[in-house]
Design a protein around this nucleic acid. Structure first.
Lengths: 222, 222
DNA sequence: GCTCTTTCGCTACTGGTCGTAGCGTATCTG
DNA sequence: CAGATACGCTACGACCAGTAGCGAAAGAGC
């Protein structure tokens, strides 16, 4: 696998990025514009009112659409919010900046920027909370939000490997587990600092955190 | 400050650990047994139904108490859940096990055990989500849940310092910022792994994570 | 023992939300 | 043009947070 830069649009099914329209191709087709308007309205309402304040009726009104139309596409409020938030994470990327530390710093900065937006603050946590109970929702969150983030870390490692930064003696299994730890550490730490501790993620902080994360991993770098 | 082991009961106001009863000492006193029954019922309902499924009426019924009694002591569902969950974190401690790594491993294990319980899984995330909107609730969460955790990290550092593990040349300001980073990293990583990634925190994982965290911090250890 | 004060349980109620049902209409396919 | 599907609208059922008002219980202080 060649180390490549991940561009925003890279879905397996680019046409049906949001709700799978069960169109069987006979009657009146679904309005794609309505889809977009609903997602936009959801993000807007999320930013203004947060998870708790967001109501389906309000979203419908903002989107200029009937409430029933929302339920024709998304089975519940949670699933609608998953898609509305997930589209933001689609914009993440991991470009090759010459060193693993620089790559990770860029990812952290972008991730922190997303988590600082008002529409994501409460929504992400509320989604995760809901996901601990609803198995189906949990899987959907993983696919649409968590997995795309993890891919970034894997890409960063592939790039570092191609640049010859990594210790070639490490076996693949160990390295894969390390990826898991590193991913949980990056995402969890930034989330905790922003959403729980409530302190900002500055470039200086990113530098210090990334240094802590990378320099020491015994034997990871050559 | 002597490096000391933190015991469970260490509140500034040990009598009013839960709701501040505005008793002015004239008429019928509040039933302390009811307080305990309500908190127990809350945790029980939380474990069974999660945050979304928990209703004040249900909690009242389980506790054998009128719903109005709940609202006489806690202003809202969120605040009740804060206290119900916070009492679990009161049991955390950081005993001196001879090395910083051992101390942190013990804290991580205990913290992970708490986050694995069904009653905390969804409740914590839902609380944090609610806290991003409600300033008052956010402060309360910090006082009752986040701060006690942070104290553990500070205690661990004090113990390490007393044992002579720390580099004495580091200035206090830098060290304090490091405490913040380390705290966010420990809490955030464990939370993310358990609640978002949904993977278990095993002793082996704890060992690897702690090693990653400590060995490398440039100049932290002597 | 008596009174005063506060809490307690109960019932009823308001306001709001999710999610659904039914119907007539609009819009596209073949 | 006919069939099929999506759409907007209104109304509705179920549920829940949180409040109001009352009579009764249970202590505190004398």
């Amino acid at each position: 696998m060649a180390p490549t830069t991940r561009q925003p649009a890279e879905h397996p099914d680019p046409a049906a990025a949001t709700p799978p329209p069960p169109t069987r191709g006979k009657g009146r087709p679904r309005s794609a514009a309505a889809d977009q308007a609903i997602l936009d309205a959801t993000r807007e309402a999320l930013a203004e009112l947060g998870w708790g304040g967001l109501t389906m009726g309000d979203v419908a009104q903002r989107a200029g659409v009937a409430k029933t139309t929302l339920y024709r596409r998304w089975p519940s409020k949670s699933e609608l919010v998953v898609d509305a938030i997930a589209s933001l994470f689609d914009q993440l990327e991991c470009s090759d900046r010459g060193s693993l530390q620089a790559d990770i710093e860029a990812v952290v900065a972008r991730f922190a920027e997303l988590l600082t937006r008002p529409e994501t603050q409460a929504a992400l946590l509320a989604l995760f909370a809901e996901g601990t109970r609803d198995v189906h929702l949990r899987r959907r969150i993983r696919e649409r939000i968590v997995q795309p983030q993890k891919v970034l870390v894997q890409l960063g490692r592939a790039n570092a490997q191609a640049r010859g930064e990594m210790d070639p003696d490490r076996d693949a299994a160990t390295a894969d587990e390390e990826i898991d730890i590193i991913f949980d550490t990056i995402a969890g730490t930034v989330e905790h600092r922003l959403l729980v501790s409530g302190e900002p993620v500055t470039p200086d902080w990113i530098r210090r955190f990334t240094t802590l994360l990378l320099n020491p991993f015994p034997g990871l770098l050559r």
